[in-house]
Design a protein around this nucleic acid. Structure first.
Lengths: 204, 204
DNA sequence: TGCAATATATACCGATCAGTATAGAAAGTA
DNA sequence: TACTTTCTATACTGATCGGTATATATTGCA
């Protein structure tokens, strides 16, 4: 089967492509098109492999998407967990917003957030994909709530503030940023949105 | 051809369906599925008409979508223009956010914003749809910028505030709300997000 | 060298996509 | 009643969808 990490000598004809490279390419296509918008024809052409190779290596389209989503969270959403390590609530907000900016409006990657794209779109067939993306997002949002509750306990968020409300508010802004980024809003405008959000943020 | 308003006596066999009802149904389907996610099979079944009837009355799928989008803006986004008539900048923000809440998280309509759904998703064929939706949104955002500039001129927004930045910030929150609504976030949570946003809003 | 194992290339599958050709049904007009 | 006009119902088009069967090519091992 597939062994992306260990390059153990196997029998049979060796694979002619690098599964990690191919997966990174698939991620890029899914990121541009969404799950349903990415056809197997476009995927296989971009990855430089044929459909049987794709199915042998990754299972099927849905399994490929989940692996791409894993890669996305591992490599592109790492700013989230590192943001939670900021010393203050304001620092967390700053790192989250600037991280979102860098990740979803960079020059080298598609614009917008794969999670937002996949949860908003599309038809009925992709329902299980949608649910999975929403579930993953919920767990990372819970971590943010916990962090802000800690901030309130530590005093850098005022006693009468609502950590849960602030957390969902913050992710709302981040998701709005992704929508705008995907719609082609300029980076400069997005930076002003982040600045405005931080200017409103109710803590030091 | 089609004459939805005037019921002039025409020759030939009379149409057996009400184009306005059919269009309202089509809007609901597009709203649930997005442009590409809504198949003609699902559309015609929900509308209770056959494909030839749909094509004779509405042109094609894209034209039907544009007509549905017109209806959507006319009936569902009217809260935007009425919000701009609020006496103060804070009143504008309040009405916009509560209007978005009522429209995108109501019990009778699909969750989320048709514009966000259509601009975020999907494949490459719907590119012209995407562009159209983005353009329509831009023009309504311009109206909000104008309104906030007036607010600054009138003094209910401080001299050193940035109306353009505040306007895009506000629409960012609204689009984030739509993403969350489409993902199934509870109305109560969304109301807390609105309350949090207004608590942060930098004007009386 | 021959065999088992794995990968590739080609061509195909049934289902669905948006869109249409054709024929019949229902109205006004003469 | 005959005729024109318009709508509806059925069946179809070529293209594309995700997925696969088959045959061939390339390796390790015996």
């Amino acid at each position: 089967m597939q062994c992306p990490a260990t390059t153990t000598a196997t029998r049979g004809r060796p694979r002619e492509f690098d599964p990690e490279d191919a997966l990174a390419t698939a991620l890029r296509i899914f990121w541009q098109r969404g799950y349903e918008g990415a056809s197997l024809a476009e995927l296989t052409e971009a990855m430089g492999i044929t459909k049987p190779s794709l199915y042998a290596c990754f299972g099927n389209k849905e399994a490929l998407f989940r692996k791409a989503l894993d890669l996305y969270e591992r490599e592109k959403l790492c700013y989230v967990s590192s943001a939670l390590e900021a010393p203050t609530a304001r620092g967390v907000a700053e790192r989250l917003l600037h991280g979102a900016l860098a990740t979803h409006c960079g020059d080298n990657d598609p614009q917008g957030c794969l999670g937002v794209i996949s949860s908003v779109a599309c038809g009925s067939e992709a329902e299980s994909i949608r649910k999975e993306v929403i579930a993953r997002r919920a767990s990372s949002e819970r971590a943010l709530v916990d962090r802000l509750e800690r901030a309130r306990a530590e005093g850098d968020l005022s006693e009468d503030s609502d950590p849960e409300a602030l957390a969902t508010y913050l992710t709302t802004v981040m998701q709005g940023l992704s929508v705008k980024a995907g719609a082609g809003t300029s980076r400069e405008t997005l930076e002003r949105i982040v600045a405005t959000t931080l200017a409103c943020w109710p803590s030091k």
